[in-house]
């Protein structure tokens, strides 16, 4: 049985809220067209939301950074919430991350400021409208920016009678927020002198607020040793060459970790590459959590 569901974003009270997005799964085999891979910044949490509902992997879902905001969901369907804990409430009833709930008629979902991480996800069990799935934004960018009063329809599949409560199956991915970020040497790592390399590895970084899905700008903490600095003089020019999400580029302004929406080629030295899974973890760190890199060998 399928029925029409309408999802509407009513906005967020906090000006600190980021921009929510409807995100499709990461795309393979498109980077040669200069299309970014896209996909959620925290794929395990996003995948878990879809898994809770029995949705196919990569089904578009909502990615919400920093502040949950207020959403209206009209129609019978099922919702799953994962990722950052945003004190979610459905019609005033608290809902923990890693939970799926059945919804009937009209419901209001409210999330406040994230407390455990940065990015939350929620998925609905249904097929998004053709207009959404074939939209230029989703095709080229892999996501649709959601502004106030944004709304979209989808067809929800509800098998049997809608239940009031769905058993919470678990918390979903939980990240270690204290250990260093594991990295591999990048192609230009050996361009740097041993002193600079050591400086980059001993430095502790915070994520700049000038960060987004294209990349995370890193700021060294104030007590960072001098060996970290003055790397600009060592930066050799290079002609642009392919990059991947998770690449750490060294720019004159400091290191940048490329995100899922980053360009496919770049002209700054690629000094490090994050180990698999680490990009999701570092995106969930937030702005005030200091971290360092831990260099791994390939062998």
């Amino acid at each position: 049985m399928e029925n029409q569901v309408t999802l509407e974003y009513l906005g967020a009270a906090s000006i600190a809220s980021g921009s929510a997005k409807l995100i499709s799964g990461a795309r393979r085999g498109v980077r040669h067209l200069a299309l970014p891979s896209g996909g959620p910044v925290d794929p395990p949490s996003a995948a878990f939301a879809n898994e809770l509902l029995g949705n196919p992997p990569g089904q578009p879902l909502i990615e919400v950074p920093l502040v949950g905001g207020t959403w209206r969901i009209q129609g019978d369907c099922r919702i799953a919430l994962t990722g950052a804990d945003m004190h979610w409430e459905i019609d005033g009833q608290p809902v923990a991350p890693g939970t799926a709930r059945d919804l009937r008629d009209s419901n209001t979902l409210v999330g406040r400021a994230a407390r455990s991480a940065v990015f939350a996800y929620f998925a609905l069990n249904g097929r998004w409208s053709k207009e959404i799935l074939s939209s230029r934004e989703l095709l080229l960018g892999g996501n649709i920016k959601i502004g106030k009063s944004w709304s979209s329809n989808l067809l929800a599949c509800v098998d049997g009678a809608v239940k009031q409560q769905f058993t919470a199956p678990g918390p979903g991915p939980v990240y270690d927020m204290t250990s260093p970020i594991n990295v591999y040497p990048g192609p230009e790592w050996t361009w740097l002198s041993p002193t600079r390399r050591e400086g980059l590895l001993t430095a502790r970084y915070e994520i700049s607020t000038q960060s987004n899905r294209q990349g995370l700008r890193l700021l060294p903490q104030p007590n960072t040793p001098n060996s970290y600095r003055d790397h600009a003089s060592e930066l050799l020019q290079m002609i642009s060459s392919p990059v991947l999400p998770g690449t750490v580029q060294l720019t004159p302004a400091g290191p940048i970790i490329l995100g899922p929406d980053a360009h496919t080629v770049g002209g700054y030295p690629r000094i490090l590459m994050l180990a698999p899974g680490e990009l999701a973890r570092v995106y969930q760190f937030g702005f005030r959590r200091a971290f360092a890199f831990h260099l791994q060998d390939f062998y």
Partner: peptide, 16 residues
């Protein structure tokens, strides 16, 4: 191999 990304003088080969 899921993607081969050519540039001026380099080629990235991505595996699954």
């Amino acid at each position: 191999v899921t993607d081969c990304v050519p540039a001026y003088a380099s080629l990235m080969v991505v595996f699954d």
